[in-house]
Design a protein around this nucleic acid. Structure first.
Length: 478
RNA sequence: CGGGGUGUAGCUCAGUCUGGUAGAGUGCUUGGUUUGGGACCAAGAUGUCGAAGGUUCGAAUCCUUUCGCCCCGACCA
């Protein structure tokens, strides 16, 4: 059977992924090293994801703000671990003017900045500086801030959506009076992300704490959401950090308690990025292209009139009218009356992952029927129902699709997680070509033998198992 | 930054070794026949051959310089 995407997932997974992005018209690589242009269809998905995430963030009492893109270099210098973590991937702004020199436009040597700026790779430092002024009294706490911005990390190995030099994200930064509150907050945001990914993106996450080796630069605790791709590799899709007092001490975030004593605050930071989109595309899609979870699909339903020359006008009008009735139930509908052949339209929207396709031919227009096909299941789900029944049930169909998608990923995740008794068993499984996550006692991974396996198989510790933190998941990752 | 590739039509690439004035597939436009899971026929448009310099009667092709990108390593939301 011919597939819309070649090669297929089984033939070459990473090439399939690249072609998927292009075929679904989501993004293309930009004329800037490591960067991508997110195209309108891809951005529409991000806007839906962002809007829902933003609602949930605000429901936690967080306020949005916007901090500068450029960060003075000495801000970065204030937290030692943090510098070490990001120094190797920073873009630096050194000049403020261009000049024509020997016929080519170059930074004007006379415009060199006395102190360079770095383009933010993350904003703990510049937000920390602001917080040190904004937090004076215990009455100012908790202070909860978030921003939706782009950041830049000069990554060595870019991949569309998964790792680009520039990416968009939300970064939340909170301050509390006590460590208990801060840690509870980091966990709360972690859980919020997990719920969001399941309820909106139809992705059940592997959730847990990062081991000390894998922690964020400058954090006491890092809570992560790991996703399992169809090829068994891991992808970190979101994190929440308990930063302890590292940043409050580096930046002087201090307040007077109601006991009259001056003390340092306790901060958290938490973020999700456009990488979530990559995860969602990789997890749900198939050899015919994108499969979108209904709640973030820019169009949830596409109506395709199967026209002939003599019926086109009436059928297009009828389809448009049906589209209006469906829209009135709250679903996002596209009526494709464009000047293309019907089969071409079908493939176009299959590749773009629209959850439900509705086809209407001339006879159906007379009988009041429509033919519907679910994208997540494919042609086996094709059936003919009354248009009035579709209108009555379309929202339930969306929920069904979403729930089925969650269940499918949940089943696959379960199959992809393997318990291993010791390092020899892990070695044997990997040598045998087994893919997925391997669950092993954490204490078994803190030795040279494990270092050797990490090297040999390119595996890393993903996170501790929330259900029993003496166990750790290890896997290959993106 | 080390090792290996590559740059030619919107896209994917052939042509370079052996110099002779620009090609294929796909996409695009038009016309006709088609139309419920990727149609067919015909006609047509599209190029500073990454850039600069050199050799030559003549350069995509040979030489020199230079720039970009891709893959493998270190890094990572």
């Amino acid at each position: 059977m011919k597939t819309a995407i070649t090669p297929t997932r089984a033939e070459n997974f990473s090439e399939w992924y690249q072609n998927l992005i292009v075929a679904a018209d989501l993004a293309e690589s930009a004329p800037v090293r490591g960067c991508m242009t997110i195209k309108p269809y891809g951005w529409a998905i991000w806007e839906l994801m962002r809007d829902e995430m933003d609602r949930r963030i605000k429901a936690h009492g967080v306020q949005n703000a916007n901090f500068p893109l450029l960060i003075p270099i000495d801000f970065f210098n204030k937290e030692a671990e943090h510098v070490a973590g990001f120094a190797k991937e920073c873009a630096v702004v050194t000049h403020h003017r261009l000049k024509m020199i020997d016929g080519s436009l170059q930074p004007d040597p006379d415009s060199k900045l006395t102190e360079p700026y770095i383009i933010r790779p993350t904003s703990e430092t510049i937000i920390g500086e602001a917080m040190s002024r904004w937090v004076q009294s215990y009455r100012d706490l908790p202070l909860k801030l978030n921003q939706w911005v782009n950041v830049m990390r000069w990554e060595m190995r870019p991949r569309m959506f998964l790792r680009t030099s520039e990416f968009n994200w939300q970064e939340g930064h909170n301050v509390f009076a006590t460590h208990e509150e801060a840690n509870a907050d980091a966990r709360k945001m972690h859980k919020m992300y997990g719920d969001y990914m399941r309820e909106i993106l139809a992705i059940p996450s592997i959730m847990g704490e990062k081991t000390p080796e894998e922690r964020f630069a400058g954090a006491d605790h890092t809570y992560t959401l790991e996703h399992i791709m169809q090829d068994g590799k891991a992808l970190q899709a979101g994190t929440s950090h308990d930063l302890g007092q590292h940043f409050s001490k580096s930046f002087g975030i201090q307040f007077l308690g109601n006991d009259g004593k001056l003390q340092h605050g306790w901060t958290t930071s938490w973020g999700t990025t456009t990488r979530m989109m990559g995860s969602m595309f990789m997890i749900h899609s198939d050899d015919d292209g994108l499969v979108l979870p209904p709640f973030v699909a820019p169009y949830q339903v596409v109506i395709i009139p199967i026209t002939r020359e003599d019926t086109a006008e009436k059928l297009n009008a009828y389809a448009t009218e049906l589209g209006e009735k469906l829209r009135a139930t709250g679903v996002r509908v596209l009526v494709d009356t464009s000047d293309m052949r019907a089969p071409d339209k079908m493939w176009k929207w299959i590749k773009r992952g629209i959850p439900l396709r509705v086809e209407i031919g001339a006879r159906e227009m007379e009988s009041g029927d429509v033919t519907i096909t679910r994208r997540d299941i494919g042609r086996e789900s094709k059936r003919t129902i009354q248009a009035t029944d579709l209108i009555a049930s379309v929202n339930n169909i969306m929920t069904d699709i979403h729930n089925d998608m969650v269940a499918r990923v949940e089943k696959r995740n379960a199959e992809m997680i393997h318990d291993v008794a010791d390092l020899d068993a892990l070695d044997a499984a990997l040598a045998n070509g087994e893919i997925g996550f391997f669950r092993i006692k954490y204490e078994m991974t803190t030795n040279e033998q494990f270092e050797g396996l990490m090297e040999k198989y390119k595996i890393t510790r993903r996170c501790l198992d929330d259900r029993d933190p003496t166990y750790v998941f290890v896997a290959k990752s993106y």
